[in-house]
Structures are given as structure tokens and as C-alpha cells.
Amino acid sequence: MNRPPILSWLIAFLAAAYFLVPLYATFDFSLRMVRGELTFEAYRSVLSSDVFLSALAFSTVASLTAIVLGALLVVPTAYWVRLKLPRLRPVVEFLSLMPLIIPPVVLVFGYVRMYGSSSFLPMTTTEFGINLLLVIGYVTLSLPYMFRAVDNGLSAIDIVTLSEAAESLGASRFRTIVSVIFPNVRSSLVAGAFLTFSISLSEFVITSLLNRPGFGPYMVQVGEDQAYQPAALAIMAFAFTWVCMWLMEYFATRKPGQIFAPLRKRNLLKAATR
């Protein structure tokens, strides 16, 4: 390199400072709840509050439901498009990317008006309906990531051969998806699931506008009422995001089908040429 790396070091140092100072400041602030001492009192206060636990429980259940629903929606579709309907691929892919274009506030506005009390599908009139609408909102937000993750997973395995093999052994379509395709994309699916989880657990806009007692609105409320607890929450949220991203990386790069499928294909080819 003929450019002096001093400049690179300087840039990296400034960027690291910008990234790390807020983290350090927040951590420092979160320890100062008791005057003159450094304690974890703010964390204890947050973790022992009933509202925290109920909000976290609510959002966890909603996010997990969204992950299951999203997987049920995305896995068969991505598989089917690759296997039978490659022509439809641009349409399906475009629809999966739409939530990146439409801001959540616009989306939930549409839901509230479209599925309000005077609609053909009045979902906002019952408790169950609103919760379902919330989960649907989370599924929609995570659609781009789930579809991308699963589709990448599918591209690594030879689904045509696997499907034919399953079929020739007498498996039904359903059976093929459940016991052949699903285990092969499990890693990618889990990777997408962790991203979904980290997005929907602290989601604020949709949760708040549907008046659900989720974690996002809870955090905003704490931010308005208290001084030190928000900093503790921010540190915990950062650690949570980090763990989710780490697990996502771990599962996204671990592809059991990758070694398995080409081997099988080679064997088949060998058998065919013999």
C-alpha cells in the first residue's frame, strides 16, 4: 500500500470513539442511581418491576408467534417457487421486499383503517383480532429478512434432486417439506428468526399504535418517567441485539446441506455415467 496507513488508523480511531463513547457513557450513567456509589441498582430496579416482566413476556410471545407464522408462510413458498414456479420469482421477491419500502407507520395506518370496525374483516374490534394484527405486522416487517435467509438456504441445497428422491420413496408433498426440505434450511431459518426476534421484540411503532402492552411502548414510558433505568435498559437492549446478531451470523454461515447436497449430486452423476 503506497497510501500512508496513518490516515486509516486515524479514521478507524475516530469511528471507534464515536461508536464506543455512547456505549461507555450509557453504562457509566446506568451505574449511578445511588448517589456517590457505583451500583447495579438501576438494573435491579428494572428487572424486579412487574411491568417490565409482563411487557417482556407479551413481546416475547408475540415475536415467537410471528417467527412461527413467518416460517410457515415463507418456507413452503420459497421452496415451491424454486421448484415449480421460477417465473413467479420476481413477483414473490418484490412482495417480500415491499416492507423495506413502506414505513411501518404507514403500514399500521393502513391496517387500522382497513381492518377497523366497519371493514369486511373487523380485526380491531376484538382483543384476539388486535393481537393477531400485531403478529401479522411483525411477520410483514420481518418478511424481507426471512425470505432472503430461507431463499439463500435453499440455494445451497439441490432441492430438485432431494424432492425427486423423497417422491420416489413415496413421500407426499407435505412430508417432503416437513422432513426433507425443512431440516435442510433449518440453520438459515434460525438465522432469519434471530433477526426477526431482535426487530420485533422492541418494536415501537406498530405496537404502540395498536395499543398493545409490548416492550417498545414500555421502554418509551420508562424514558419519560425515570432517569437511570432507561440507561440500564439501553445497555441490556444492546447486549440483546449483539447476542441475536451473533447467533444469526453463527447459524447463517453453518449450512449442513452444503456438504451433503453436492456429494449426493456427484454420486448420482457417477451412477448415471456408469
Binding site: 463513547v21 455512547p22 457513557a25 418494536e203 417498545g216 421502554m219 424514558g223 444492546f238 446478531m245
Partner: peptide, 26 residues
Amino acid sequence: SGVASNFAGVPLAFAFIATLGRLGLA
């Protein structure tokens, strides 16, 4: 970068209040 680009929303606001708010560390 992967973590920080996903670390938007409410906690980010809290972090910056603790950093550059009226009584923030910085």
C-alpha cells in the same frame, strides 16, 4: 456495524441522552 445498524429505536435514544443530553457524560 451489523449490530449498530440494527441498534436503532428507543434504546439508541436513551444511549445518546446519557452521552450528549444535558447531563450526559460527554
